[in-house]
């Protein structure tokens, strides 16, 4: 029996890259459990799109958010109770179209959350439009003559925004992806995992990725080399591209406070308010 599954009927297309991602995350949760990170503390969110359905398929607590906003949702979870380990699943259109400001700012402030991006370079659930990361010339129902925009590079953008953990994985390399997810959740600070996810219905990239994905043999040395790896167009190197230790947002904001577990008693709060109300 799969102790991380719910009764929700899986409605992804047969062969969808999301199946591998879901399997990898379940393995990561179990591996984290063995390392002492209890699954009760892993709290999840997701945006809206094919990727978001993973929320229903995982027997983990959290909030199924709205399109583009789950990065904000998980930051709010962390601020409220820093004992939790928030993880959000996002789509590439979800994160870098609707929600790009939240992505940049979550990285900028080094919010201690994990973002796993289902990167299929297409809006699947709305029938195949181009996304912010689709290649120029991508043909979809909103761009029948081909997209005229250059794509964003999510890895480079997250690096430049201040992300302290940036990685790329591929579900076909399952155990490699599991390891990236474990490391991302363990990382203290903003973790971004770009998962190359073929969409069998609208952007089938299996062949391309099988040919061009390459497991990196070492962590790039520093920001400049990481940026070089992020910007490569001949190959898709997978692995941890950048990792750095920096103070995290909630600790910078309020030190060792915890709004939920350290909440003042009513009596204490009233006394404080009375003090401020004195003329």
């Amino acid at each position: 029996m799969d102790d991380l599954a719910t009764y929700a009927e899986n409605t992804w297309c047969p062969g969808c890259g999301n199946f591998g991602l879901l399997g990898a995350f379940k393995k990561a949760v179990r591996a984290l459990g063995e390392k002492g990170v209890s699954r009760e503390k892993i709290i999840i969110s997701a945006g809206i799109g094919c990727h978001g359905k993973i929320f229903d398929y995982l027997k983990l607590s959290g909030l199924y958010s709205i399109h583009g906003r789950s990065m904000a949702t998980v930051q709010g979870m962390k601020i409220a109770n820093p004992e939790l380990k928030p993880v959000t699943f996002v789509g590439d259109g979800d994160a870098f179209g609707e929600g790009i400001a939240h992505m940049i700012f979550a990285a900028k402030r080094n919010a201690d959350v994990t973002v796993i991006m289902h990167d299929n370079a297409v809006y699947g659930l709305t029938t195949g439009q181009f996304t912010p990361v689709s290649e120029k010339g991508f043909k979809g129902p909103s761009t029948p003559k081909g997209s005229v925009e250059e794509p964003l590079n999510p890895l480079a953008l997250m690096l430049e925004s201040g992300a302290t953990f940036v990685a790329r994985g591929y579900p076909v390399k399952l155990n490699h992806l599991v390891n990236l997810m474990v490391k991302a959740v363990e990382h203290e600070g903003f973790s971004f995992v770009d998962v190359l996810q073929p969409c069998v219905s609208f952007n089938n990239t299996y062949q391309k990725y099988n040919n061009l994905v390459e497991i990196m043999d070492r962590l790039p040395e520093g920001y400049e080399e990481a940026m070089g790896v992020a910007k490569r167009r001949d190959k898709f190197p997978i692995g941890i591209i950048y990792q750095e230790k920096k103070p995290v947002f909630h600790q910078e904001l309020y030190g060792d406070w915890n709004p939920v577990t350290k909440r003042m008693s009513r009596e204490e709060r009233i006394e404080k308010v009375k003090g401020l109300l004195a003329p």
């Binding site: 409220a80 109770n81 939920v260």
Partner: peptide, 17 residues
């Protein structure tokens, strides 16, 4: 937009927001 979505995330974690 971040303001209200963060606040809802905080509610889910149990904070009066």
């Amino acid at each position: 937009i971040a303001v209200i979505n963060m606040a809802i995330g905080s509610v889910v974690a149990g904070a009066r927001s």
